[in-house]
Structure formats: C-alpha cells, structure tokens
C-alpha cells in the first residue's frame, strides 16, 4: 500500500505516501518536486492547450499569426539589413540566414517574457487551488514551442526554395540546441517569474532587456562580424544556439561542439539557479501575489 514514498516540497512540505498527505512547514528542494510535476503532467498539457487555444480565439487568421510574425520580421530585416545595409550572411542568402536566427531567438525571447508573467496572469488559480507551481512556467514554454514548430514550416519551405540540404548531424544537434534554448528560457523565466511575484518591476525591465539582448545576439548579423572579440559573444547562450543552428542547417560553418558545450553548461546552471530560487519563494506566492 505504501509502495511509493513521495516527498513534495515547496509549498511547505507535502509528503505523499500512496494516499497519505502530510503537510508541514518545511522547504527544501528535492527530486520529489520533479516527480510531482510528472504526476501533474496532464494539467501541464491542459494549461498549454488552454493558452494555445485562447490566443487565437476570435482572430480572423487564427494560427497563421504564429507564422506571420517571424515571417514579416524576416522580410523587413532582409530588405533593410540584407538588401540595403548588405550585412554579411556567411555565404547563404540573407533571408534564410536571418530567419534561422529569428526562429530560435523568438522562441527564447517570447518564452522568457511569457514565463516571467505567468504567475501573475494565473493568480486567481494560484490562490484557489494547489498544484505544483512549476507547471505554469513549463506550460508557457511549451506553448511557445508549438509556435516555434509551426514557424519552422516556413524554414523548411525556404530551405527547399534555396535548395539547401541540412547536415545529417542536425538530427542530434537541433534537439540539443532546443534543449539549451529550453533551459535558458525556463531557467531565466523561473527566476523572473518568482521575482515578479514580489517586484512587479520585472514587467517593465524585461521587454527593454530583451530588445537589447537581440542586438548582442547574432540574429541579424553573423558572429564573425565581431572579429577577434567574437568570444565575448559566447557568454550569451543564445549565440551558441543560433550559430550552430545555422552551421548545421545551412552549412555556414562546422558545428562548434565546444560552443554548444559552454552554452549547455551555462544554461544548465541558469536552470538550476532559477529552479532553486523559484522553489524557495514558491511558498509565499499565494500569500503575496
């Protein structure tokens, strides 16, 4: 009967032994938090489904918005940066060069901003029902991932149009890059979401910060533009992601495993720090939100 001894923490300490719940005022992070999230995976699915569904309700072109935004950005950037400013694009046509960058960038930036506000947006639920709060940020990122997947269709079309065949290593590299992006968005998002509960300043800082970050990330220009200082850009995890995505999909360069490794570790640290901070303040969400 007591087959599974499960410990859940965060909102005080809630221990589950099969069907027994124990609530105590303790707060340490443990593996059981992840197990708890797993038990609530259906709710994760429903939140993602809700966000996705609601977003395109009462719109004329519905889901096409997921494609429209990156597509139009790509067109404008191609005209101004590629066409008029003649920004170098590592030997591939500028539109597909910038679109690859935008695809990953928008996944990251939209996931980050969505995640940071998710607790506030759902405060009426948070104060009325218990569920592992981690579900909410995770579902935000998942929703954005669906957008990413839809917008990828355009990339496929463009690759076909320009006759570019992705490298076979894409099968391994792209999931790794997605994992890095995911960790960066979730890690940063969890931290910001938790801060946002107490300090609403986040919602003013973040859009501005994301805008700045776009310019220090090689989205509209190749990393090579920075010359001997390009290593500086390596501190930005999204640089490793975008540069390697281009390398493997468009053949702009060889895959830089070192860069991927650095980004991976950096994002993992960010994820761990973000999660721990989130769990630390999670107990008070319902009280101060």
């Amino acid at each position: 009967m007591m087959a599974s001894l499960q410990l859940m923490n965060g909102l005080g300490k809630i221990i589950k032994m099969s069907n027994i719940t124990i609530i105590k005022p303790k707060k340490v992070f443990s593996m059981e938090d992840l197990r708890e999230v797993w038990r609530y995976k259906e709710l994760l699915y429903f939140f993602t489904w809700r966000d996705f569904k609601v977003r395109y309700k009462q719109t004329a072109i519905g889901i096409l918005w997921a494609i429209f935004q990156p597509f139009m950005t790509m067109v404008v950037f191609s005209v101004f940066f590629g066409g008029l400013l003649k920004v170098s694009s590592d030997g591939v046509p500028y539109p597909i060069f910038v679109y690859t960058g935008l695809l990953f960038w928008q996944f990251f930036s939209s996931a980050l901003s969505e995640t940071s506000g998710v607790l506030i947006a759902n405060q009426s639920i948070i104060t009325k029902v218990y569920f592992p709060r981690l579900i909410l940020p995770l579902s935000s990122v998942a929703t954005k991932f669906v957008d990413f997947a839809i917008a990828s269709i355009i990339l496929g079309g463009m690759m076909f149009y320009y006759g570019i065949t992705p490298h076979i290593a894409s099968i391994i590299v792209i999931p790794v890059l997605l994992a890095v992006t995911f960790m960066a968005a979730v890690g940063g998002g969890l931290f910001l979401a938790a801060v946002n509960v107490k300090y609403r300043d986040v919602r003013f800082i973040l859009p501005f910060f994301i805008q700045l970050l776009l310019f220090v990330t090689p989205v509209i220009y190749p990393a090579s533009i920075a010359g001997k200082y390009s290593w500086l850009l390596a501190f930005n995890p999204m640089m490793g992601v975008i540069q390697n995505a281009r390398a493997v999909l468009l053949g702009t360069a060889l895959v830089n495993w070192l860069l991927i490794g650095i980004s991976f570790v950096a994002c993992l640290v960010l994820l761990i720090v973000g999660t721990i901070y989130f769990k630390k303040v999670e107990r008070y969400f319902a009280d101060i939100i």
Partner: peptide, 16 residues
C-alpha cells in the same frame, strides 16, 4: 489544508 499556503508550524496528516 489544501496546500495553497503552508502552515508556519504544526502538521497535518490526511489519509486519502
């Protein structure tokens, strides 16, 4: 009892 907010002290055991 629902777990929305943690107690400052004490313990609750619920069997079910």
């Amino acid at each position: 009892l629902t777990g929305i907010t943690p107690p400052t002290e004490g313990e609750i055991i619920m069997r079910g």
